[in-house]
Design a protein around this nucleic acid. Structure first.
Lengths: 322, 322
DNA sequence: GATGATTATGTTAGTACTTACATATCACTT
DNA sequence: AAGTGATATGTAAGTACTAACATAATCATC
């Protein structure tokens, strides 16, 4: 399932879906057994049944819903003849909810159904049912102790505060070069043979021909990379630029790009070009911002199947002059 | 929390509540970070972002919702300028959903927030977060393989088919006498010393003084019990009556009670009384139904702290006569 | 006993879904 | 080409909640 690949990000959706499944299943069972009760009524009715009459607020707190949800539910239960509202003589604000005899009778007859639900759920889910219940209880507890929003905001602040540094290639980073590029290529295109070759041995295919390889590092981890390939003396290609998915949006790409251009200038390069794909609008816009200009057609003799965009760098000074 | 005592019965409610918490948390984070996106949009947007344009049905299947939910969501996303609907030229029925540039930009900037959510959730939930995800995935899988409704109905049929029998004490049942009573006492009151003594050695404290001990058995398992204690010659106390939680509602208690009264008559008993607590309304009503009459006050010399109800049995014949 | 704050509930409006139905298109068969 | 069933989407009505507000009763303080 797609959602499970998103892990923590799609928890809400998945829990909701599972919740709906259980509600629907209970309703179907009640209907099949001829019980005139709805699954949504269960928490309120069961509470009143087990604990005796209670106020709206008390029930709401026990079953973890708002008082207005309970109040509205009671409207329905009242209409269905299951619950009576009585004023508390001690405290006129309170509405005391009392099960009617009809409800007591109906609930009394539900024992075997509830028992069957318990067993049926256990049978269907097997051990995972127990695990789900345990995890659920643990998470409910954890969320009470450690609210989630401040935790997320703290992580967010920490992420943004971590210094981002651009560092040159070192052998320990070879694996990151491969990982980052493949992650990116698989998402947008597919990995071509020419890619695997270069990605697997950057020292031979990037550095040896006189190119440069840069990495963006945050918190000790390589999260982006960018290569400057020397095609001919003084002629460089900007290539293999990518940033880890989970660090998108932090401006990492722009910093890598700036660093690569600075390196091109430091080496006194004569020409800098790149090939890309028109699907990558965000990237193309960024290239334009730093000084690349779109050329008509593709570069003669391009070795990438995916490239349909050809851009050439023109330093700001040149542009002013020309 | 009350709901967690209901185990499998309240799974729907609890999952829904947790789901809502995650949605609300995500929305709060988005708001705090100034991102103009809503948590409910996430699955659709993320899918389109990661997998490129897709049709309504494709997206719905991927994120596990109905096509109409997606269609309605797309209405909102369209209004918000995040998604465009385009007709599929190959198949005129299909609506192809395409992210707008604005959406791409917004989603691009969300990288660190998503990353923070992942980390924040993990930080708040600790290991339980991983357990929840694992259990969730396992249960989703299990429900696909073994639908839950037939499993419940099968259990229900099996339950009703099992014959219920009332049997007298035998040594193998001594453990059940203890288990059933303690389960019940812990739920409602607390176990008093006088209880432990008698529960631990029924042969000495129930049978030796001339009492009787009955058990309800279903499918080979003891699921309820009831004692008839002889206080003085011909004077009996009905006591220690309880039924396993998970077999409530099957009429087990009533059968035990009827059997105990029959035993009292068989022995030619002169007086039968019981002590109970006013909290146990269902039980009290049942006692009244079979012929017990409420007495004012408590029984003189009662040995239970929890008893505030004193009832004496009057055989139907006596009542007719009196 | 007047007052202001708090508490308990009810009410209204809105949201996110569902189910059920309607409509449009496609793929086949004849 | 005309009809038929399947498929893809849209639309309408309904449900179960929430949030926000309104109302009423109680408590605390002077």
């Amino acid at each position: 399932m797609y959602l499970s690949t998103l892990a923590e990000l799609a928890l809400g959706s998945r829990l909701k879906a599972l919740s709906d499944q259980f509600y629907a299943a209970a309703d179907e069972v009640y209907r099949a057994c001829g019980a005139s009760i709805e699954s949504r009524w269960f928490p309120v009715l069961r509470y009143l049944w087990g604990n005796g009459p209670g106020t709206v607020g008390e029930v709401a707190a026990a079953i973890g819903q708002t008082h207005s949800a309970v109040s509205q539910l009671v409207d329905k239960l009242d209409a269905a003849g299951m619950v009576r509202r009585e004023r508390d003589p001690q405290d006129g604000r309170r509405s005391v909810l009392v099960l009617t005899d009809q409800a007591r009778k109906a609930l009394g007859a539900l024992g075997p159904i509830w028992q069957a639900i318990r067993r049926g759920v256990s049978a269907s889910l097997g051990e995972d049912g127990g695990r789900l219940l345990a995890a659920l209880a643990a998470c409910e507890e954890a969320l009470k102790e450690r609210p989630i929003v401040p935790a997320i905001l703290a992580e967010h602040a920490a992420l943004l505060a971590q210094p981002l540094e651009i560092v040159p290639y070192e052998p320990a980073l070879a694996g990151d070069f491969y990982r980052l590029n493949v992650q990116w290529l698989e998402r947008y295109f597919g990995v071509e043979d020419i890619d695997r070759q270069m990605l697997g041995d950057p020292e031979r295919y990037v550095l040896a021909p006189g190119g440069a390889l840069l990495f963006a590092r945050m918190g000790g981890q390589a999260i982006g990379t960018c290569a400057l390939l020397q095609e001919a003396p003084g002629v460089y290609e900007l290539s293999k630029m990518c940033v880890d998915d989970s660090y998108q949006g932090l401006g990492v790409g722009r910093k890598l790009l700036d660093a690569a251009i600075a390196e091109f200038h430091r080496r006194g390069g004569r020409e800098l070009f790149l090939e890309s794909n028109s699907k990558l609008r965000t990237a193309l816009r960024m290239y334009e911002q730093v000084g690349f200009e779109l050329q008509p057609g593709v570069r003669p003799g391009s070795h990438y199947q995916r490239s349909d965009v050809y851009m050439v760098y023109r330093a700001p000074a040149e542009r002013l002059a020309g």
